[in-house]
Simulated scan of single mutants.
Amino acid sequence: MRLRKLSLGFLLFQVFLGYSFSPALAEKTLQKKSATEEDLFLYRAIGATYICVAREVDIEFSKASAIAAITYVNLLEGKHGGKIKVIGDKELSRKELIVGANNQLIPAAVEYCPDKIPNKTKKDVEKYLKELKKKTKRK
């Protein structure tokens, strides 16, 4: 056991030392690719499915949707550095990502499991989608 800890410590020290002498290598390793449309579609499906499953086992909607949104945001921050390809190189703030996550996940949950979503939320989503459709037509 002690040898294992010593070996792990030595290995981590070598990695750290390598990054210290090669900042370009460290920077390249730490660069993260922006989330693609496919990535967002997958994360949306995962989050909406989580909401549906959580509601199935009687977890209240606000808790289920909050956990799903935070998970979505954690994926975007961890894997993509908070960047989304269609937006560009801008790293989005956590607050912006949470708003975006809710705008993606809640309508998807309404689509996937409408019987598990509170009526007020379904009405709000319908209103939001109508407004979004109007804005899209104007452009």
Score class of each variant (00 low, 15 high):
20 S>D: 08
1 M>A: 12
137 K>C: 01
99 V>K: 06
111 E>P: 08
99 V>I: 15
13 F>W: 15
123 K>Y: 10
80 H>I: 04
24 A>N: 09
72 Y>S: 00
25 L>C: 04
10 F>W: 14
18 G>S: 02
120 K>W: 09
77 E>R: 11
87 I>T: 02
32 K>L: 07
91 E>L: 06
91 E>N: 06
43 Y>G: 01
81 G>E: 00
50 Y>D: 01
102 N>I: 15
126 E>F: 09
135 K>M: 10
52 C>H: 04
55 R>Y: 08
93 S>Y: 04
96 E>K: 07
96 E>P: 11
109 A>W: 12
8 L>P: 03
99 V>A: 13
7 S>R: 12
70 I>A: 04
4 R>W: 08
56 E>W: 07
65 S>P: 00
114 P>H: 02
43 Y>L: 01
87 I>K: 04
135 K>P: 00
17 L>I: 09
21 F>Y: 13
34 S>Y: 10
125 V>F: 12
116 K>F: 13
97 L>T: 14
23 P>E: 02
94 R>F: 08
8 L>M: 11
8 L>Y: 11
81 G>L: 03
41 F>M: 08
100 G>M: 11
58 D>Y: 09
7 S>H: 14
53 V>C: 00
6 L>P: 03
59 I>Y: 10
78 G>E: 07
27 E>N: 10
45 A>Y: 11
138 R>Y: 15
67 I>T: 13
82 G>M: 00
68 A>V: 09
47 G>K: 03
114 P>G: 05
19 Y>F: 15
87 I>R: 07
35 A>N: 00
